[in-house]
Design a protein around this nucleic acid. Sequence first.
DNA 1: TCACTCTATTGACGCATTTTCAATAACGGA
DNA 2: TCCGTTATTGAAAATGCGTCAATAGAGTGA
Lengths: 210, 210
Amino acid sequence: MTTSTPGGTTSTQRTRLTPEQRRSQLLDLGVRLLATRSLDELSIDLLAEEAGISRGLLYHYFGNKHDFHEAVVRRAADDLIAQTAPPVDGEPMVRLTTSLTAYVDYVSANYEGYLSLVKAAAGGNETLREIYEEAREALNGRVFRPDAQSEIVPDTPATRLVVRGWSAMTEELVLSWIADPSGLTRDELLEVLASSLLAIMATVPGLPES
Amino acid sequence: MTTSTPGGTTSTQRTRLTPEQRRSQLLDLGVRLLATRSLDELSIDLLAEEAGISRGLLYHYFGNKHDFHEAVVRRAADDLIAQTAPPVDGEPMVRLTTSLTAYVDYVSANYEGYLSLVKAAAGGNETLREIYEEAREALNGRVFRPDAQSEIVPDTPATRLVVRGWSAMTEELVLSWIADPSGLTRDELLEVLASSLLAIMATVPGLPES
DNA sequence: TCACTCTATTGACGCATTTTCAATAACGGA
DNA sequence: TCCGTTATTGAAAATGCGTCAATAGAGTGA
C-alpha cells in the first residue's frame, strides 16, 4: 500500500516562470555561487534552496551538474567577449587601448562572473578549458591583425606564445589590482598593460623591426 | 544469522608500512593522479586500488577527500620551493637567472606535479588558494632583496603588483612552452623571461632610476 | 466564469560514492 | 614465543547526485 501524495500536508507554493526566465535566473545564480565555491563544494541542495526551486527542476533545464557548470561558464565567456569588443577601425594602438580599457572595466564590474570563468578554466575538464581558451583566443586575437600590415605584433609561433604570457599577466594584474587598487590608478594600470606588451615584444629574439 | 568474517575465504595480504612511508606513498600517488583528473573525477576506490590499500586507510591518514587534496597540493608546493631555491650569494641578476633556470627545469621535469598545484589553486577553495599564494609569494620574493640596495626591483606596492603579473606570465609561458616548444629554444625562453621583467618594470610610473 | 490543455515544477525513490568504526593482523620488544 | 601496540581492513551508515511519475500554475476557448 503505497501512499503517493507528494507534498504531504503543507502544499508548497510554486512560482511558474517561462523557461527563459528560469534558465536565466539559474545561470545568474550559478555565476554568483561558483565565483567563490568550486563545483563539488556547491551542492544541488544549496543551489535549489537559493533559487527557491526543487532539486529536480535543475535537471529539467540542465542535464546534470557538469552541464550546468558548463552553461554557467559559457554565459560568463560570451558576456565577456561581447562587452569588450574592440572598435572596428582606428589606429591599431588606439584600438588595443580601447579594448583593454573595456576589459579592465568589465572585470571590475563583473568580478564574480569573471572569477567563475577563470576558476573553471584551471580546475575543470576539457570542455571547460576549451570555453576559456576560446574566450582567451578571442581576446588575444585582437592583438594581431588578420588583415594588412597594420598589426601591432607580427604573427609568429614565438609571438603567439609571448602574447599568451602577456595575456596571463594582464589577467593576474587586473584581478590583483581590483582586489587591492593601492599603488596604481586605473589609468596607470592601463598604461602599464599597453606599454608592457610592446616592451615584452622587444625582448623576443629574431623579430623584424616594427 | 550474521556471518561476520571480513575477507571471507581469501584472507587478504596486508603490507604494513610505517606511517611516514605510507603517507609519502599516498601523497606521491595523489600528485600523479590529480595531475590529469580533477578531485571529483578521482574516486577513493581508484586511489585505494592504485595504492594497494583499502578505502578506509585513506581516512586514517587524511580526514577526508578534501584534506587529502590539500596535503597533496602542499607537498607539490613545498617540493617546488625547495628545488628552485636561488643561490645564497652572487650578482642579483645572476641569482635571478639561476633561480629562473631552476624553475623552468623543475616544471619541465615535474610537469604533472606542477599541474596538480596550479590546477588546485585556481579551481579550489580558500585553503588551496592560500597554499598556492604562499608558494607564489616565496618565488616572487626572490625578485626583491630584503637586504641592501642590491635588489633587482625596488619594493613598492606598484612593483609588488607588477611582479605578480610577471610571475603569472612566467607560469603561463613555461607551461605553454613545454606543451609546444616550437618557436623558442630553452635559452631564448629564459632570456625573454629575464629581460621582460626589467622591460616591464621600466613601464611602471614613478620609480626611482635603477 | 468555468473547464481543459499544456507544461513548468515537484518530491520521493534508486544508485553511486564518501565516510565511519569496530574488528583484524602485522611487526617489535621482552 | 608470547604479547601489546597500532596499521589496516571491510561492512555498514551517511551523504549527495540523478530519475521519473505525479502535480499544479497559467493561458485559451466557450
